[in-house]
Structure formats: structure tokens, C-alpha cells
């Protein structure tokens, strides 16, 4: 066990836990943030993507011990923001949501990308989302949605 402090969806948290725990399990089971999905458990599919200090990471391969002192944002926390509204409405308008299991992760990865690069090119979007697998959409609607969000949210990022 170890004391671990971090900010979770804008709230300070201190827990005494096994630092080996997967952050994914902590977020889902201890805090009920089930918008963080498990797709592969090995950091490849991106369904469990969250933001740590504004950067996208896959929470299934982040040990709890690595988030000490960090700021964590799950889709639940991010969904309260204006940026989320811009991204999610763009996803809706472009038909980028099908089964939805990859969608929270896709939105998180989009946010991480737009944070660094508010006006990404088509190719930069594809690279930015390359760690998020989607089996339904063939990605093009998602790429269009991120382009649209970047335009609609001009100035937000």
C-alpha cells in the first residue's frame, strides 16, 4: 500500500492503495467512472484513454503509483466542459459515433491532440488518433468530426 494523491476530474483525491493497481480499475471500480472502457487491456486500443496533465494515456497500462501528483481527467469530467460540447456535437453531426465503445477514448484523444495542435491537418488528426481503434466507422467520419471541432471551437484551444 502507498499513499497516493492526485486530482481527479478537478477534485483532490488521496487514497491508500496498492500502487500496482491499474488506473483503469481504480477509475471504474473505486470511483465509478465507467465511461473509461476496457477494450484490450494492453494499451493498444485506446478505449480506456484518459487525460493525465492534458495528455492522452491508456489507463489500462498506467499503474496507480505513476499518477501521484498528477491531474487526471476522465470522459465524465471532460464532458462538463465547453470543449467537450464542441467535440461531441461535431462527432454527432459527422456520424462519428456508432457502437460507441471507442467514442469516449476518441474524444479524449481528440482533446489531447487539439490541446497541442488546435488546427491539425487531416494527416495530423489520423496520427493523433492512431492509438484508438474503431471497428465500426472506418475512421473517416471521426477525422471529419475533429476537423469540424477544430473549426467550430476556434479559440477554445
Amino acid at each position: 500500500m502507498a499513499k497516493i494523491r492526485f486530482k481527479l476530474n478537478n477534485k483532490m483525491i488521496e487514497i491508500d492503495e496498492n500502487p500496482n493497481l491499474r488506473l483503469l480499475d481504480v477509475l471504474r471500480d473505486k470511483f465509478g467512472f465507467t465511461g473509461v472502457k476496457e477494450g484490450c487491456g494492453e494499451g493498444e486500443c485506446g478505449a480506456c484513454a484518459i487525460l493525465i496533465n492534458n495528455d492522452v494515456v491508456n489507463s489500462c497500462i498506467v499503474p496507480l503509483g505513476n499518477v501521484n501528483g498528477k491531474e487526471i481527467m476522465t470522459i465524465e469530467g471532460f464532458s462538463l466542459s465547453e470543449k467537450f460540447d464542441v467535440i461531441s456535437s461535431s462527432f454527432a453531426e459527422e456520424g462519428a459515433v456508432q457502437c460507441g465503445i471507442c467514442t469516449p477514448g476518441m474524444i479524449i484523444a481528440s482533446e489531447s491532440l487539439l490541446n497541442k495542435n488546435p488546427k491539425p491537418t487531416d494527416e495530423e488528426i489520423r496520427i493523433g488518433l492512431s492509438g484508438n481503434l474503431c471497428r465500426c466507422t472506418g475512421y473517416n467520419a471521426i477525422v471529419k468530426a475533429v476537423t469540424k471541432a477544430s473549426k467550430k471551437g476556434d479559440g477554445l484551444w
Binding site: V36, I75, E76, F84, S88, F91, A92, G100, P104, I107
Partner: peptide, 11 residues
């Protein structure tokens, strides 16, 4: 717009 966009997007 699809009826389930929002619940899927916000988790």
C-alpha cells in the same frame, strides 16, 4: 442526429 450520440460520447 442519432438518438444515442450523447450518452455514448459522455460515457
Amino acid at each position: 442526429l442519432k438518438i444515442d450520440n450523447e450518452e455514448k460520447a459522455n460515457g
